[in-house]
Amino acid sequence: MHTIWKGSISFGLVNIPIKLHSATEDKDIKLRSLHKECHSPIKYEKVCPVCEVEIKNEDIVRAYEYAKGKFVVLEDEDLESLKKKNEDKAVEIIDFVKMQEIDPIYYDRSYYMSPGEGGAKAYSLLRKALQESEKVGLAKIIIRSKEQLAVIRVYENTLVMETIHYPDEVRASGDVPNVPMEEKVTKKELDTAILLIDQLTTEFEAEKYTDDYRNALLDLIESKRTGKEVVTPTEKEKKSNVTDLMAALQASIDRTKPVKPAAKKRTTKAKTKKEA
């Protein structure tokens, strides 16, 4: 597994060198956008709307928009210094709580934790202590320039770090529109609903749940591929150097042709003879 973060976790005087690895992966099928006429992939270019020119990465700076149209520019050096200052610190478990006290709405991403060099014993100690106490650890960590609140727990004999949202990142449920207040429900209706829930209750087996849409889309793509329903981009027509050279030569000749003097009008000559 690819290591995305390397550092240490500590609780009390116990320090554990660890590595983080992504525990999940995005298996969404990514579709490309093509030009309908020639089936060429569409480019998405970074263009300045004022200068009307394409912008390179080295010409882009980051900024915070504190008011409409007003920005504070942040230099890369400032951000790197701030990031370095916090990343150098060992991640400390600040609290231990019961997992049931954390609502699932707070959870974000999962990372497997493996022990670093010399950290196997301390890793095993924390794992065993969490299992015996039936608690999870709360810690703070900076990942990809963002400070995260995280839960450290045991999953199938492996320590897992779950990043969780801060309270101010979870929107208030009271802001959800059209949620009804408590309605009067008859005992018969409630008993019937509970009976239905009981009939559909089973043990959770993750393996039996599949992404039906993704599987159907993969089948569709494969059937089109094997049925030769494929398209290829139309190659951009290359200009011939010979044609360009001939055009340039002809243009040069046309420019250097001597200008013929304008012919004299007959009426002028006739008028001269008559006057003579």
Rank of each mutant, 00 (worst) to 15 (best):
K184V: 12
I152F: 02
T158D: 13
L159R: 07
G137N: 05
T163F: 04
G137Y: 03
V179I: 13
Y166P: 06
D175M: 04
R153P: 02
V179H: 04
E183Q: 11
R171C: 10
I141E: 06
K140I: 05
A150F: 00
T158G: 07
K146Y: 14
E162Y: 00
E162Q: 08
E156Y: 11
N157V: 12
T158W: 04
E147M: 08
I164D: 01
S173H: 13
K135N: 15
V154D: 05
D175Q: 08
G137D: 02
I142S: 01
I141F: 03
I143T: 04
E156V: 14
L138C: 09
R144Q: 07
E169I: 01
L159I: 03
K135C: 15
V154F: 02
Y155P: 04
I143Y: 06
P167N: 11
I141K: 07
K187I: 04
P177S: 06
V160E: 13
E183A: 14
H165Q: 13
E132M: 15
K140G: 08
M161V: 09
N157F: 13
S145F: 09
V185W: 01
E147V: 03
R144F: 08
T158C: 13
E183C: 06
Y155G: 11
V151A: 02
K187W: 03
H165P: 12
K187R: 09
R144S: 06
G174P: 01
V185D: 01
Q148F: 07
Y166W: 15
I143V: 10
R144M: 05
I142K: 00
G137E: 02
T186C: 07
T158K: 14
E134Q: 14
E162T: 04
D168S: 12
P180L: 00
A139H: 01
G174I: 13
P180I: 00
I142W: 02
P167F: 06
V170N: 10
